[in-house]
Design a protein around this nucleic acid. Structure first.
Lengths: 346, 346
DNA sequence: ATGAAAGCGCTAACAT
DNA sequence: ATGTTAGCGCTTTCAT
């Protein structure tokens, strides 16, 4: 009636092996074996040993799909990045992966691309796995997606930005503040003719616009003509930086400072300056953004804005884990700030 | 008896919403709703429309954990990288993610670290999710892990290397062949005093050793003393490259060519050479490995070895998908080769 | 400390 | 083309 025929053992061990098999081998009920694995304290020494032996002998690996379905905890966290190429978010993804792994969670990675097109399909794939949390790099744009995420009830951490209206939790910093701070920094050091090489993506634009505004406010630039800006398409490259300097110089040969929206761009500018025999920093001051690992080893060393990407990853992981374990997070917004790293290029 | 109490509808829509709810709304059986979503061709136009309407209205997102458990297809592929930082594997991970997403699969990312310690825990976490495939960057080292993977019956693609004994499938290239080819390349261009700046990781070592051997064979180096080598710890940095040149020069001031195990190192060497007034390529030829995006924009442009990382990702995805859909893969080993990109630094 | 029963949300297999 | 039934492998709940 119930069992139509004895189960046929598969040849490969590990495959098709279930908790029942382990339990049978250990001479206990499946649920007891489950406890031995998940809450070892709730089980006697003897049972614990027998179950562990059985696991050892068989090479049993629990099926987390089944476990997740039954317990409604997937131990999976999804991260969404615009693109994995481009080293800016890497540090964050890296530390996120590590912090989560230490707590027994795995990371699922999704690339949204720089257009919105795939975002919806991606979101569906993510929510479908019932992850215990979602980490977004950047603010989620489409209102549809925001609504869906919210409706799903999954804890969400937005990162790398600040907004008055986060979906849920937030670890980021103000791009506007960076733009203003860099403007002041260059102003204090006596720079007068500034320009910008910047990515076309939204966050970069906001840094650049805040920078331009503050420059005007500080009298570093006459309000008439707009501040010279060279726009490039993300992901940024050395070549774009080189070309950026070339074009800016053509329009305005007496520039004395450039703010780039990435260290890569800044490095391109540096190379082009070297090729043209322009001395950095005496003739031209140069600032980047990101403090990539190579920036300190350039010649001259690059002055730049450092974001603690690792800190963002760790904080995001902490947020998610707290919520996954059922605790409330009192401070849902964490401004991690930024640091201007003074080196030789200004 | 059976139902203890009517189910309490949760406030949030999307959460706790199941296929049954959708089916009820559409006035069909759950399985029919399931078919409407998964195999739309197998249902009538009318039903299809009703189900899609219901999905639309409710914001239903199928639970892939449950689906995976029932169907034994998780639509999840795991990728293992030593570290995500370090741009070498990025291209592969990127194209893998994309190719898989296009076919409806998601990528789960695991970092093994450069030591073996975490590999075992990682593998357990991976196998536990019953992924439809595992992509390894590099060959899996520990025999234990190999055995476990093999036992799990999950399709495996090893990448970025060649071995006579792959676990299952393989997309890679010969690091030895690269070392030899670079040696010949430099030899043909008349270089006589060569040295190496290389990472300590295994694949890098194999390139370097093959390079050194071939150099001796070509008479570019007297067999007595070993070829000058500067070893650095991965992940490689510009600073290591700079220091590498400095130290090599101290030991052997008349060097005329250097082979680096990464473009980053090569760039460090280039910077140090500029600082010291050493002309590239006339005084010193320089070769990198990886052809990172910036390498063509350096001054001089970096001659390097290009690996088609995107191709590796695509091929790996194709392998996995083929197997996941139940097809056999006749050619399980794919040597994707490499290309020496001739630019200005040699 | 251990176990029995029920069910998580879905799909495979077998009807109809 | 649609429905019924019986699980997938685990954990929750409620005994004992």
């Amino acid at each position: 009636m119930t069992a139509p025929a004895p189960v046929v053992r598969k040849g490969r061990k590990g495959a098709g092996l279930t908790l029942r098999d382990v339990a049978r081998l250990a001479g206990v009920a499946p649920i007891t074996a489950s406890r031995a694995l998940n809450t070892p304290d709730a089980v006697s020494e003897t049972v614990l040993k027998k179950v562990r032996d059985a696991v050892e002998r068989t090479g049993y690996v629990p099926n987390l799909l089944a476990g997740g379905l039954a317990s409604k905890k997937s131990r999976l966290v999804a991260a969404v990045v615009p693109t994995i190429v481009g080293p800016i978010f890497l540090e964050t993804v890296q530390s996120l992966t590590e912090a989560l792994a230490d707590a027994g969670y795995q990371l699922m990675l999704g690339q949204s691309g720089y257009e919105n097109s795939r975002e919806d399909a991606l979101l569906e794939a993510i929510i479908g796995r019932r992850p215990d949390g979602v980490v977004l790099t950047g603010i989620m744009r489409s209102p549809e997606s925001r609504k869906r995420l919210l409706a799903s009830g999954i804890p969400v951490v937005e990162t790398w930005d600040l907004t008055p209206t986060p979906i849920d939790m937030l670890v980021g910093f103000s791009h506007e503040a960076i733009g203003r701070e860099v403007a002041r920094y260059l102003h204090q050091r006596g720079r007068k003719k500034v320009a910008v090489v910047g990515g076309r993506d939204e966050r970069s634009q906001r840094r650049m616009n805040a920078f331009a505004q503050e420059c005007v406010a500080l009298g570093m630039h006459e309000g008439r003509a707009p501040l010279p800006m060279h726009h490039v398409t993300a992901p940024t490259t050395l070549g774009q930086g080189r070309q950026g300097l070339a074009e800016l110089l053509q329009a305005q040969p007496d520039l004395d400072a450039i703010f780039c929206s990435s260290d890569i761009l800044a490095m391109g500018v540096m190379i082009e300056a070297q090729v043209r025999g322009i001395a950095i920093p005496s003739q031209l001051a140069l600032m980047g953004f990101g403090d990539l690992s190579f920036s300190r080893d350039l010649h001259p060393q690059l002055t730049t804005v450092r974001i603690d990407g690792t800190g963002i990853g760790k904080a995001a992981a902490r947020f998610i884990i707290e919520r996954a374990e059922g605790r409330e997070v009192p401070e849902r917004v964490h401004d991690i700030g930024f640091t201007i790293i003074e080196r030789q290029s200004v």
